[in-house]
């Protein structure tokens, strides 16, 4: 279903099937999702691709182009938060003692938030449930803006929870004394992660990954494992398996074709890895729907 809903407080919700090239500047802080296929965003020199398992943050004023490059129709969904709504949310959370956004615990959140947030994050946890509920209700014609804004408020809570988990909790794991070094290393590791998210189906070498992240290969391997408790290769395999799962569920492509589409070389190793991770073979998983 296609709609562009502007609420009285200027929050905007967009849903639609995209099949074109789009060039824009974001007027407000936005969260972008896709519910099928994938959408590629160009921001400066960075190429960021979002799938159903990830979402993208765009800051106010960011100039971007987005293109759809998917064999299946791409169902986009986006929320833009009005400045005042966003600021009210941040102020209300700052006043709470037991909040996940406790700025006494994370005093550097304000300083680095803007620099960090414009990247790809995993679409998971409570954000997944709340965005799905919101999309469902608006698709069915929900008019009650109080309820819609309640969902939007919770989407922000959920986003900042993910931001906290993905940025600050992981920065704490890095073995550096200086906070600023931890933050800088994590910023570069996030570049590596977004590169893996966006190029998962190509043959990625460690050299090119390290170059994109502005780290040496040794440094990348050591710090990536410290922060994320896995190697870049393990992270890449995890993305490929999740996207293969999505294709098995939502398309009729033969398994062998999916193996190639997500970047695996060998069907037998794909089947073994899939079964290890999800405790079911790809064919049995597909037949369960």
């Amino acid at each position: 279903m296609e709609y562009l809903r502007t609420l009285r407080n200027n929050n905007v919700i967009y849903s639609g099937t995209r099949n074109n090239f789009n060039q824009q500047t974001t007027s407000d802080f936005s969260i972008r999702f896709v519910f099928s296929g994938n959408e590629r965003y160009s921001i400066g020199k960075r190429q960021l691709s979002i799938h159903t398992d990830s979402f993208l943050i765009l800051n106010k004023g960011t100039h971007y182009t987005s293109t759809v490059e998917s064999a299946i129709p791409v169902q986009s969904f986006g929320i833009s938060f009005d400045d005042k709504f966003l600021q009210d949310f941040k102020n209300s959370w700052r006043l709470k003692d037991d909040t996940l956004l406790n700025l006494n615990t994370y005093p550097f959140i304000n300083r680095y938030e803007h620099e960090f947030d414009e990247t790809i994050y995993p679409f998971k946890g409570d954000l997944f449930f709340n965005v799905n509920h919101l999309k469902h209700h608006i698709g069915r014609g929900l008019q009650d803006e109080l309820l819609i804004n309640e969902y939007l408020h919770h989407c922000l809570i959920n986003y900042f929870q993910i931001f906290n988990e993905e940025i600050f909790q992981k920065a704490q794991r890095l073995n550096f004394l200086s906070k600023s070094t931890k933050i800088e290393i994590l910023r570069r590791l996030n570049l590596a992660k977004e590169y893996l998210y966006s190029n998962y189906n190509t043959n990625i070498s460690l050299d090119e990954l390290a170059e994109y992240a502005c780290l040496s290969v040794t440094h990348l391997l050591r710090t990536f494992r410290q922060a994320f408790h896995q190697t870049p290769h393990q992270f890449l395999v995890q993305i490929r398996l999740q996207r293969a799962k999505d294709l098995l569920k939502n398309t009729d492509y033969p398994v062998n074709e999916i193996v190639n589409m997500v970047g695996f070389d060998c069907p037998s190793s794909f089947i073994r890895l899939f079964k290890d991770r999800f405790q079911v073979t790809p064919m049995k998983y597909r037949l369960s729907f």
């Binding site: 509920h133 209700h137 109080l146 309820l147 309640e150 969902y151 919770h154």
Partner: peptide, 8 residues
Amino acid sequence: HDCLNDYH
């Protein structure tokens, strides 16, 4: 199945 909706 939807806490925010029922809460509201």
